[in-house]
Design a protein around this nucleic acid. Sequence first.
RNA 1: ACGGGAGUGGUGAAACGGUAUCACAGCAGUCUCCAAAACUGCUUUUCCAGGUUCAAAUCCUGGCUCCCGUG
Length: 322
Amino acid sequence: MKKVLVILGPTATGKTDLGLFLAKKFNGELVSCDSRQVYRGLDIGTGKEASKKLEVKKQKCFWEIDGIKTWMYDVADPQTRYAVKDYVGAACRIIDEITQKGKLPIVVGGTGLYLRGLLDGFSNLAIPVDEKLRRKLQGLSLHELQKKLQELSPSRWEKMNDSDRSNPRRLLRSIELVIMYGFIDQQVKYRGLNQRFKILKIGLTVPREVLNSRIDLRLKARLDQGLVEEAKKLQAEGLSLERMKELGLEYSGLARLLGKEISREEMIKILSLKIHQYAKRQVTWFRKEQDVNWFDITKDNFALQVEKCVREWYYSVDEQTD
RNA sequence: ACGGGAGUGGUGAAACGGUAUCACAGCAGUCUCCAAAACUGCUUUUCCAGGUUCAAAUCCUGGCUCCCGUG
């Protein structure tokens, strides 16, 4: 059985650095699993380059960082909306290609939903989005959406938890699933990677306080690298501040700065807070992930420990029939 | 030092003498296409000491602290 290595964990734990390290050891190529790195032009704010200053060559379909090919960067225009389905389809194809070359795909993931979709597969992705319906439902109040779903599909409503029942987006998608059920998109038949590959998951952890201070340091470094200039460039290229806000974290802060809603100092304060909260949500998500080999990045020689773990798996022979 | 004003969760605010409330932060969580999104739950408060009152964050007295003005 072919193998895929997965590195996961919250932001600012050095997933890309570790990925590069392992790619060199095990003849690998990186596949980013990040809902914002897919967008062209969002480079500094999404941390496309590794923390160390390495040689980066941007190619048409991939970046070459310190000689290692890195995929799933720059596959979408930031003005368009990219979603799980797009990611899963594209990433899957690339992983197959890497495997065919005889190399090891290393998925570097911070976006839990995308990663789960890629590894386990989401059956609902075959049920298409209906823009017209969404536009129509967008105006409805929470209560109206709830009523609508209860009428359309009481069983689906019953299955939802309290949190989702108050979530307009989930309600809307749920209604969409009921209405669009008959229009299954035959193109997106898709099995999760875990059915076709032997997967090793490496998870990175770090004490919360350390993580927060790493985030703050990284934010400062990004500002020094020209984060604000990057945002100005995006704006000059036609990206509206409105859309920039939707891109979240750094970019939403930057959009407010450029829109003169907040000062630079306020922005830094807000961003620090928002990124801490985001990291916490990532930790919550990944906590439930199955079969993860966790490593604390503050421990001595952690990279070597990881390497050892990967080596055992990488050279192991599958006893079962392929 | 004098005159004036103000002290309510970690922060910013609300409460005619009548159940101390809200937002943010914090903590825990949800999750099958906006996921760096959206959403849920929980914790925590009346500066101190007296007094008036059935009842005080609220009124009175004293103390402490802070702010503004004058010196």
